[in-house]
């Protein structure tokens, strides 16, 4: 080879596992933890207060968002710093269609999917041809653009946002209790896990890994790296869009400030915390994200500072996350 590309991923094992969380590396211990947690998730509404349910609903919601972003970051190895934009696209689609046009909530979901796909293609199409760094910064800009547009248009309610979004109903049964939404988001999170798992273990999932490990070799094997990355980017966008629809329905009000850059960073943090690319890891990360500030309430506004320090320490000392991917 005339020149070894300096960008070629170096996949030598970086630090890997170890440290105080080593007991999580055993397969048996992981299984026990998982079973207990699954039971807890199923029967939680029977035993807990509304406050706990509210927090847990948010946690499932973040599980879905983080799994969506994980497809982009964990599977395809692309850094997306404007993921909240897709979440915003979904939320505003539902908000606008239900409150301005009286469209049924369930019909807004396909519309949101469509818009998310369009947004994903417009942003991803040109930038995915370039070095991955460009994508990071363009998505950052895109996140800002979407927020500024939402702030400045009349149809999105300007800076104060949209209020009075109708709650959805299924067969005449209106979803209005917190435990309804708990189960809605639990189901969504499970669905997200299922889809992620199936995608990861498929032709497309393998292609993401090839491209992540060595773009040139993947291309030499006949893989269109731009198309493969675009798939990841767009599928991630759909996850975010759908999550946004349900978010709007649950909150009944949305405002541009929900979709600030910090939101995108939080979601990314969830993906990084538990270990990129691995579904249980991402779930752990999403929960850590939501539960941490609830447990340490005194931290207040400096929680992002703490998160950022944790993120730096993880990247430096446990780069594969708390719950890293296992390889024989």
């Amino acid at each position: 080879m005339a020149r070894i590309d300096s960008a070629a991923p170096k996949t030598g094992d970086v630090a890997g596992t170890g440290g105080p969380l080593r007991w999580l590396d055993s397969q048996k211990n992981r299984l026990i933890v998982l079973t207990v947690l699954a039971f807890l998730a199923m029967f939680l509404p029977l035993i807990s207060s509304n406050y706990v349910l509210e927090v847990m609903t948010t946690a499932w919601f973040y599980v879905m968002l983080c799994l969506g972003l994980n497809i982009v970051v964990g599977y395809a190895g692309l850094l997306d710093l404007g993921y909240a934009a897709f979440f915003a696209v979904g939320a505003y689609t539902t908000g606008i269609l239900t409150s301005h046009f009286g469209v049924n909530f369930w019909l807004t979901i396909p519309a949101a999917v469509l818009f998310s796909i369009c947004a994903g293609v417009i942003i991803g199409g040109p930038t995915l041809r370039l070095r991955s760094d460009y994508l990071a910064i363009v998505t950052l800009g895109f996140g800002e653009i979407v927020r500024i547009i939402a702030r400045n248009l009349e149809i999105t309610g300007g800076a104060s946002g949209l209020i009075g979004i109708e709650k959805p109903s299924i067969f005449g049964f209106e979803l209005n209790q917190i435990f309804h939404f708990y189960y809605v988001f639990l189901i969504l999170a499970c669905l997200a896990c299922f889809v992620s798992y199936r995608l990861q273990h498929s032709r497309l999932g393998r292609a993401w890994q090839y491209v992540r490990e060595d773009e040139d070799a993947a291309e030499a094997m006949g893989i269109d790296r731009v198309a493969v990355k675009l798939y990841a980017y767009v599928i991630g966008a759909i996850f975010g869009g759908v999550a946004g629809c349900f978010f709007a329905a649950k909150m009944t009000a949305i405002s541009p400030e929900t979709f600030m850059f910090q939101q995108s960073v939080l979601i990314l943090l969830g993906v990084v915390l538990g270990g990129m690319g691995k579904i249980p890891g991402v779930i752990v990360g999403a929960f850590a994200l939501v539960l941490f500030p609830e447990v340490f309430r005194d931290l207040g506004s400096s929680r992002i500072l703490v998160f950022a320090i944790v993120m730096l320490v993880i990247m430096l000392y446990r780069p594969k996350g708390i719950w890293p991917e296992k390889k024989s």
């Binding site: 970086v14 970051v73 710093l81 991955s132 760094d133 950022a308 993120m311 730096l312 990247m315």
Partner: peptide
Amino acid sequence: SAPRLSILITALAV
């Protein structure tokens, strides 16, 4: 010498 993604995330954390 880590994968590109890691260093980008590190920079973001900083």
